[in-house]
Design a protein around this nucleic acid. Structure first.
Length: 390
RNA sequence: GGUAGGGUAUCCAAGUGGCUAAAGGAUGCGGACUGUAAAUCCGCCCGCUUCGGCGUUCGUCGGUUCGAAUCCGACCCCUACCA
């Protein structure tokens, strides 16, 4: 019998025992750890949350572990440098917004939230040292990114070596039966499995889920690559960003984010790719903002980008409230803070990327003269629309 | 602790006294073509600017020099080998 828990997964360690447990109707502790180092969850996380939700819906216990204690160490996975240390309050703030976002997908009533400061803040140095006993340097170097960094003479800090152990220790405390995570977490999760075994506990199964490809179409979706869609993005952004993904990765989004079956995807492939993508964008927007809002974004997108009309709502700036001496275009745009620098604005203008009420602007110092009731609409590049009112 | 190599812009990386705001990639941005896709082509890519310029940058601080990313000194950090 095909087990839908195993759909969309990459690697499953301890699969046999896991299926048996599931079939026997045992209630499992399913652990997923997040690192509140940054305030936003991305659609990369959504892949894992979806899986967690599946387990929840089947009656298992979802344990959402907030790595508040470890957030300040920084997970080295796939990174070549250390993260800056965060303050306690920053971490806690991130954790709060994390939960708020996570419950857009997870069933709050069926989720156990734990923080690893609960146990690590009570641990003393001797305990920590004894934890390190169970790991060897050679085994640690098996981990792919450590090995790469080691071989290419990149620094690896000791504290990074601790990370997998810490994460593994969480699994002991939580008595987790299954840990799920992105495929870059495989090593860390396996350490947890081994630590449990050493303690004489049932060792957790480990399930990795594919990493979602980001908006650039090549690297994994991540805040640090700035190629992400966040849970907290506006409906417009979720829709727009989804539309900017390449055709090739669209099907992964369907499969991993919307959990579409193969057959359905195959049939979608027969329709025009842009229409399929609009549907994808609509459903993803709907997931977070409801179908009505999604419908609105769909229509708005079609109007603005397919038919070239101006969007209905856009950021609005009042000329009189901006702190500028001279109402030249460059000053006004600079004051909106939507651009990196005035140099960038000048560049855009000189390259013909800025339009005022539909007319290409040639001169950055153009005065925006008296503005009527309806205001003036400025379009910069493909995506930025601004309304200027008196 | 010793010896050797290294630290350059968002990232990778060239540059060993003036022609250097600093080659070349990559990412990103704008334009053309499109479907805000991909591919391709063109342009831009430290900040400010009254477009004349001005200011800041090559690990940090100090020095030599008319002039320093480049030379000297001290310090900080990374890597390798030895201990």
């Amino acid at each position: 019998m095909k087990n839908y828990f195993f759909e969309n997964t990459e690697v499953i360690i301890g699969e046999e025992e896991l299926s048996k447990n599931i079939q026997d109707g045992r209630k499992l502790n399913v652990k997923f750890g997040v690192d509140p180092t940054r305030p936003d969850l991305t659609f990369g996380h959504l892949v894992v949350f979806n899986k967690l939700r599946q387990f929840q819906d089947a009656g298992h216990t979802a344990i959402l572990l907030i790595g508040d204690y470890t957030a300040r160490i920084g997970d080295p996975s796939g990174r070549s440098d250390l993260r800056p240390e965060l303050s306690e309050s920053e971490v806690e703030k991130n954790a709060e917004t994390y939960l708020e976002q996570a419950f857009k997908i997870l069933d709050e009533d069926k989720t156990v939230v734990r923080r690893n400061s609960e146990w690590f803040s009570k641990m003393d140095f001797a305990d920590a040292l004894s934890l390190t006993r169970s790991m060897t340097v050679a085994r640690m170097l098996e981990r792919d990114d450590f090995e790469k960094r080691f071989k290419s003479n990149q620094p690896i800090s000791m504290v990074e070596f601790m990370y997998p152990l810490i994460q593994g220790y969480d699994s002991i405390v939580l008595e987790s039966d299954l840990e799920i995570g992105g495929s870059d977490q495989l090593f860390n999760m396996l350490v947890g499995r081994n630590l449990q075994k050493e303690k004489g506990m049932n060792s957790q199964a480990v399930m990795t889920l594919p990493l979602l490809v980001g908006l650039d179409g090549s690297r994994k979706m991540s805040k640090s690559y700035d190629n992400y869609i966040a849970f907290n993005d506006s409906p417009k952004d979720i829709f727009g960003k989804t539309m900017s993904i390449s055709d090739k990765v669209m099907w992964d989004y369907y499969r991993l984010l919307l959990l579409k079956e193969k057959e359905e995807i195959e049939s979608l492939k027969k329709t025009h790719p842009m229409e399929s993508k609009k549907q994808l964008a609509k459903q993803l927007t709907g997931l977070f903002y409801g179908s009505e809002q999604a419908e609105k974004e769909y229509d708005s997108f079609s109007e603005v980008f397919s038919k070239g009309k101006d969007p209905e709502d856009m950021p609005q700036f009042s000329l009189s409230s901006l702190k500028i001496d001279l109402s030249s275009l460059i000053n006004v745009l600079g004051e909106t803070k939507l651009f990196e620098s005035k140099g960038q604005i000048r560049r855009m203008i000189s390259q013909g990327g800025v339009k005022l009420d539909g007319e290409k602007v040639e001169n950055a110092d153009l005065l925006l003269g008296p503005i009527g009731e309806n205001g003036k609409i400025i379009k910069a590049g493909k995506k930025i629309f601004i309304r200027i009112v008196p």
